[in-house]
Simulated assay, not measured.
Amino acid sequence: MHELGWDSWVRTIRPEEVPVIRDALCAIDESRVRAWAVDWRRPHGADGDDDLRYVLDYLRQAQEFVESLARDGRGMVYLIG
């Protein structure tokens, strides 16, 4: 952060780095997310099951995406911000 906002974080992930990321991401399953949910569920708003479905849907999409990168031997550019 700085006086004008923030600097985006950008990183190139080379194809040879992707399998390690895939393995770590795919090791996260619903039971692990449920265990972590105790710490991040909102006290007000959507109920915990809605929050859980939301997170699990994005997790599944991320797992499928990184699996396709690994299968095709591709890397990616990662941008936050």
Rank of each mutant, 00 (worst) to 15 (best):
A37D: 00
A24E: 13
W40T: 04
R34C: 03
D51M: 14
R42K: 14
D57E: 08
D39I: 01
E64A: 10
C26H: 01
Q61Y: 09
S31N: 10
D29K: 15
R32D: 08
G48F: 04
A35P: 03
A37C: 04
A62L: 15
A27V: 02
D49H: 14
G48W: 02
D51L: 14
R53A: 12
Y54N: 13
A37E: 04
G45W: 05
L56K: 07
S31K: 14
D51I: 14
M76G: 05
G75P: 02
H44F: 11
A70D: 13
A24W: 01
G73M: 02
A46D: 12
D72N: 08
D39P: 00
A62G: 11
A37Y: 08
V38L: 10
A35E: 08
R53N: 12
R32P: 00
D23H: 06
A24Q: 13
D49W: 13
E30N: 03
E67Y: 03
D23C: 01
V33P: 01
D57I: 04
R34S: 01
Q61P: 04
G48M: 09
V33K: 00
D39L: 11
D72H: 00
V55Y: 11
A70L: 06
Y54T: 08
M76P: 00
D23K: 13
R74W: 12
W36G: 08
G73E: 06
Y78W: 14
A62E: 08
D49C: 06
P43V: 10
G73S: 03
A35M: 05
A46F: 14
V66R: 02
G75W: 03
R60H: 12
A27D: 15
P43F: 02
Q61G: 05
R41W: 06
A27W: 07
A35K: 07
R22I: 01
D47Y: 12
L52T: 06
Y54W: 12
C26M: 13
P43A: 12
G45Q: 14
E30T: 02
A46C: 09
A37P: 00
R42S: 14
V55F: 06
R53P: 03
A37K: 00
D57P: 01
Q63Y: 12
L59V: 03
G48H: 04
R32A: 08
G73A: 09
M76F: 15
A62D: 08
D49P: 07
